[in-house]
Design a protein around this nucleic acid. Structure first.
Lengths: 139, 139
DNA sequence: TCTAACCTTTAATCTAAGTTTAAGGTCAAG
DNA sequence: CTTGACCTTAAACTTAGATTAAAGGTTAGA
């Protein structure tokens, strides 16, 4: 399979596929006499794997460490550790997002609760004072 | 207040404070005769505000659009819209994270459920087949 | 043979949010 | 008057994950 076909079948750009090769992520490639890249069908599997892992939040660097690229010898214990670490990481991130969301929601409520008889400027001051309290609490 | 003091009191680096000024985020600054920057106390408030907003997940670009920098005229309706949009964005992100987490957790379970009588290589194939199914389902 | 579709390479460019470096001006103390 | 702390600028560099451009080689079909 030439790169154009692999690109079409994997849904990725040629430049991206060449980039993965350059950074040592996709080693499953040969060369024909004319210099063209020749991919075995497994290359499609690897590209899908990379895409899946990336969607799960792994960086290309992490993926390179996890995927053996020859597709047959997973350094199994390291992989499990990486997966568990990633779950923990996501959990942490979820906590931070929930906090941010609550903070913003609170701010919206604060702004909307404008007494109506005070000026916009005064409301701004009131809201700002509240935000600074939150900032102080966070640190 | 000179930049050194502002940096110390805000907990940010001088280069960062100059950078904020350069991109038009911190306009609350004067110059002394010698060329030194002179900050009013409110600059500290603005820096805290930027920090808070950034922690809530806003980009500097978004912050610039939201914060009027003269600290007294909030284009109120735009701010509320931005805040609501950010809450929606966080909610979307939370959904994606939950999905990723579930996917990884499933993968961990799959790997650990290795029958015990098959080889590591065969288990790799089994797990990979499973991952590719998930990839296909996602697209 | 011409042309269009493919393929190759290296190097530059992009975004975000800054940091670092180089070269130099200002100021207070001893 | 010199030393050290502080300030100035512009420009280059950083990371991640690519994309784009420039310049050129290969191949299939009419």
């Amino acid at each position: 399979m030439k790169i154009g076909e692999l690109a079409k079948r994997s849904g990725q750009t040629q430049s991206r596929i060449r980039f993965y090769e350059r950074i040592g992520l996709l080693k499953l490639v040969d060369r024909r006499a004319n210099g063209y890249r020749a991919y075995p069908p497994e290359a499609l599997v690897v590209l899908n794997l990379i895409d899946t892992a990336q969607n799960a939040g792994f960086s290309l660097d992490e993926i390179r460490r996890m995927v053996p690229s020859d597709l047959g010898e997973w350094k199994h214990e390291g992989l499990l550790d990486a997966l568990r670490a990633k779950v923990a990481e996501i959990t942490t991130l979820e906590g931070r997002l929930a906090q941010s969301k609550a903070q913003i929601a609170g701010l919206i409520a604060e702004i909307e609760a404008k007494p109506g008889d005070i000026t916009c400027k005064d409301n701004a001051r009131r809201v700002m004072a509240r935000m600074l309290v939150e900032t102080a609490e966070r640190s």
